[in-house]
Design a binder for these strands. Structure first.
Length: 194
DNA sequence: CTGGGGATTGCCT
DNA sequence: GGCAATCCCCAGC
């Protein structure tokens, strides 16, 4: 298993599950990633990079291993790990994690939620870590620690991405089976029935 | 310049 | 399960 950042150069659907179990540290808080989603730049209709380079997604088109942060629904920040070779514009959305260090700070940022909910959901995870617009483009090389041993495939589940209207048949959401910090799955209201 | 929509969340019934 | 909050992004005129 390749280390950081070479692990990011694999196809994004392999990068995403490889990041499960990794630790990410920012703002005095460390989370263990339990849920992620893959977005494959130019070929993926659900990706922010699908329509090409814009001011918002510029970091996606740069080198791997940096943080791509975007603003969502007028109030939330969400974070991705840029991956693939420079210019490929692939990314892995960080959807959920378990706070393993800095509980006190994370609780303050999340306003007294239950510990298991501190980093459950992409916007909640970024809030627990204190990530906002200013962290767009941040180099993650000294902030990510890959799992000592990868989460075994039999402990990983996959399914459609959350809230995504297009390409709903692509099962590029990956999570640790049975982990309580994984967010409840909500299909996009506009996704096909089933 | 403008307007419709969005990789969400949490509170409401 | 329904829906409001809230504002940036970007496509289109």
């Amino acid at each position: 298993m390749p280390g950081w950042p070479d692990v990011l150069l694999q196809p994004v659907a392999e990068v995403a599950p490889a990041l499960l179990g990794a630790h990410l540290t920012h703002g005095g808080v460390t989370v263990r990633l339990t849920e992620v989603e893959a977005y494959d730049g130019p070929d993926d209709p659900a990706s922010h990079a699908y329509r090409g380079l814009t001011a918002r997604n510029a970091v996606m088109f740069g080198p791997p291993g940096r943080l791509y942060v975007y603003f969502s629904y007028g109030m939330h920040w969400c974070a991705n790990v840029v991956c693939g070779p420079d210019g490929r514009a692939s990314a892995v959305l960080l959807r959920a994690g378990e706070v393993v260090d800095g509980l006190r700070v994370a609780r303050e940022r999340r306003g007294g939620r239950a510990d298991v909910e501190l980093a459950r959901g992409p916007a909640n995870l970024t809030q627990a870590l204190g990530i906002q617009r200013h962290q767009d483009g941040l180099d993650l090389s000294r902030r990510v620690t890959l799992a000592v041993s990868p989460v075994p495939p039999e402990h990983i589940a996959s399914g459609p991405r959350v809230g995504v209207t297009l390409a709903h048949d692509v099962p590029w959401r990956f999570w640790v089976k049975g982990d309580p910090s994984v967010s409840a799955y909500k299909r996009s209201p506009r996704a096909p029935q089933g």
